[in-house]
């Protein structure tokens, strides 16, 4: 191996530039260690390149010295902070102070994590219980709403009946109404009814005490006898016939007697006299 040729091959310049791979670098270093001439040439090349680098010297901006040195101090203390034993041995108080918050932070984080998980589990359990309660409340509410609407409609019916009764009572207690007792004819001796007649308002009410049950298609018809002539006073409803309540009939201008006959459903223009069930006069 010719040393002079090696020196002039240019590999030392490449070494100084840092463009060689690891194996080539090792080779150069081996030759430099073995041959002082190679080392001398390499030093010269490196110094030449360093001079070039140094020629680019820049005075750093103001304040950079403090920033960089402080940053360096902080950076080289970071790995020590990870090892508490080394920190304890370190006489610098600053680094202990910087180490402990880090550990406390980690411990705090773990604790917070555990607390968060526990809270999550508790919250989920509470949610399940509340959901079940809500479900049964919902069912109860539906049942109660059904009850309530049933009670309300019953109430409505009761009020309506109360109205009717109040009205009937008013008619029965009124001094303006004259009561005419209708007694049973030979056709139906047990039959009994009453007509309440207000001469002033011409209002007529029927109050049935007892009337024979009629076959299908037949209905009682009330007649007013005015100067011997029968005047239609209206058909009795089934409920009236059964004696359930008073029934207001057609207004009658004048009457001296009332009678009921059995007529086909819907009534007749003239009474079928042989079916007359009750009759009464003032």
């Amino acid at each position: 191996m010719n040393i002079q040729e090696y020196i002039e091959s240019g590999i030392l310049e490449e070494y100084a530039l840092g463009v060689l791979d690891a194996a080539q670098r090792a080779e150069v270093e081996r030759y430099a260690a073995e041959y002082p001439a190679v080392q001398q040439e390499l030093d010269l090349i490196q110094q030449g390149l360093e001079s070039y680098a140094q020629a680019h010297t820049q005075n750093p901006p103001a304040g950079m010295r403090e920033r960089v040195l402080a940053g360096f101090q902080a950076a080289i203390r970071q790995p020590e902070a990870a090892a508490p034993v080394a920190v304890a041995a370190e006489p610098v108080v600053r680094s202990i102070a910087s180490a402990q918050p880090g550990e406390a932070e980690a411990a705090g984080f773990n604790w917070l994590m555990a607390a968060s998980v526990a809270l999550l589990v508790l919250s989920a359990a509470a949610n399940l219980i509340l959901y079940n309660r809500w479900q049964s409340s919902e069912t109860q509410l539906v049942a109660l709403q059904a009850d309530q609407s049933r009670v309300a409609s019953t109430m409505q019916a009761v009020e309506k009946r109360l109205d009717t009764r109040t009205q009937e009572l008013a008619v029965l207690r009124s001094e303006q109404f004259n009561a005419v007792e209708l007694a049973g004819t030979p056709v139906a001796p047990e039959a009994k009814a009453r007509v309440l007649y207000n001469k002033a308002t011409k209002a007529v009410y029927v109050d049935v005490r007892n009337l024979p049950t009629l076959p299908e298609g037949k209905q009682y018809q009330l007649w007013a006898m005015d100067k011997g002539k029968p005047v239609d006073a209206g058909m009795l409803a089934a409920a009236t016939t059964a004696g359930d309540s008073l029934q207001q009939m057609k207004n009658i201008a004048n009457a001296e007697a009332f009678a009921m006959t059995v007529e086909p459903a819907g009534g007749s223009e003239n009474p079928t006299m042989e079916t007359m069930t009750v009759l009464g006069k003032f």
Binding site: G10, E13, L17, I45, Q47, G48, L49
Partner: peptide, 14 residues
């Protein structure tokens, strides 16, 4: 070639 030559120049300066 140029890189080597350049560094030789720099080395010669010192």
């Amino acid at each position: 070639t140029r890189a080597r030559a350049a560094i030789k120049v720099l080395a010669k300066l010192i």
